[in-house]
């Protein structure tokens, strides 16, 4: 909408134009003005987008009693709420659970999916097509419709309430196989042929030739499975009921409301829950964005 408002100037230029350098300069100036308007609108929205997070941080630094003051100003800044949350909740255990299960899920996904993709991309075997279609069908099944049978399955082998139950079902990821396969297909075969000539087996070719060349795919899959696993709520909510084994999202979901009107404490727990992934994001910003743009997700 903002776009519409800022265009008429440029539009008029075009209509009245008869050619010549004077016009070119004026068009150029108009265009720059237009671009500046674009930046202004975008900046306004970007700041608006940051308001909720800024407000949460702001609230968390106030004493509980002062959170209901309608001001951004923090008169008595304090970290008391953070201390309360760290002392009173199991949040440190939840960090550990989230970290262990997400790291194992990411590692498992990268290893199993890349190996399967290597076979599909490089090896000839009889049931290749069958396997390919079987994995393709997995793309169509939303994990959420599997929770009921998965819960019974893991219950029957007494794995509920363990980290195994949280991360194992998140390891097989059909989309990761396709991301790797697509990437491997783009690596020239001459390279692994050369390695094979030198006497390297398939596994060595996979580990020492193909995988090192696939860093972008590896990091995209690793980061995304880590983030998805970290943010998964529905499955860990069912798989784990022991407060000490809960992941961050499940833990935060169960304590919501326990702080009542102690808004500073609530916001401190939200900020603490957000912190690890904010760090992951700041560290890997480029890779995450390139991962979305450059792997199988682009249309």
């Amino acid at each position: 909408m903002a776009l519409l408002e800022s265009t008429p100037g440029a539009e008029r230029d075009r209509r009245s134009g008869t050619g010549g350098t004077a016009l070119a300069i004026s068009v150029d100036r108009r265009l720059r003005l237009f671009n500046r308007c674009c930046v202004g609108v975008l900046l306004a929205f970007a700041l608006l987008w940051l308001v909720p997070l800024a407000w949460a941080l702001d609230t968390s630094l106030k004493p509980n009693a002062e959170t209901t003051d309608p001001t951004w100003l923090i008169e008595n800044p304090t970290l008391l709420s953070y201390r309360t949350v760290l002392a009173q909740s199991d949040i440190l255990n939840w960090y550990l659970s989230s970290f262990v299960t997400s790291a194992l899920a990411a590692l498992g996904t990268v290893l199993t999916a890349s190996m399967a993709a290597y076979a599909l991309s490089r090896l000839r075997f009889r049931y290749r097509r069958v396997v390919f279609w079987l994995v393709l069908c997995g793309l169509m099944i939303p994990n959420q419709v599997l929770i009921v049978p998965q819960f019974r399955e893991l219950g029957s082998v007494h794995l509920l309430n363990t980290w195994w139950a949280v991360f194992l079902p998140q390891v097989p990821t059909a989309i990761a196989v396709f991301i790797f396969k697509q990437f491997f297909d783009g690596i020239p075969r001459d390279l692994d042929e050369a390695a094979r000539m030198d006497g390297a087996g398939f596994f060595r070719t996979y580990r020492q030739v193909v995988m090192p060349l696939s860093r972008p795919a590896v990091s995209a899959v690793a980061i995304f499975s880590f983030v998805w696993s970290w943010n998964n709520l529905l499955w860990p909510l069912l798989a784990v009921t022991d407060p000490e084994l809960m992941t961050i999202p499940v833990g935060l979901a169960t304590i919501q409301g326990t702080y009542g009107i102690r808004y500073a404490d609530t916001m401190a727990s939200a900020i603490l829950g957000a912190l690890p992934l904010v760090l992951v994001f700041l560290l890997f910003q480029r890779r995450i964005v390139e991962g979305i743009a450059g792997t199988g997700l682009k249309g």
């Binding site: 407000w55 609230t59 983030v227 943010n231 999202p249 919501q256 916001m267 939200a270």
Partner: peptide, 13 residues
């Protein structure tokens, strides 16, 4: 990249 629970806590406030 934020967990849904964090988003929920912030917006409930």
């Amino acid at each position: 990249v934020l967990p849904s629970a964090v988003v929920a806590l912030i917006w409930q406030w």
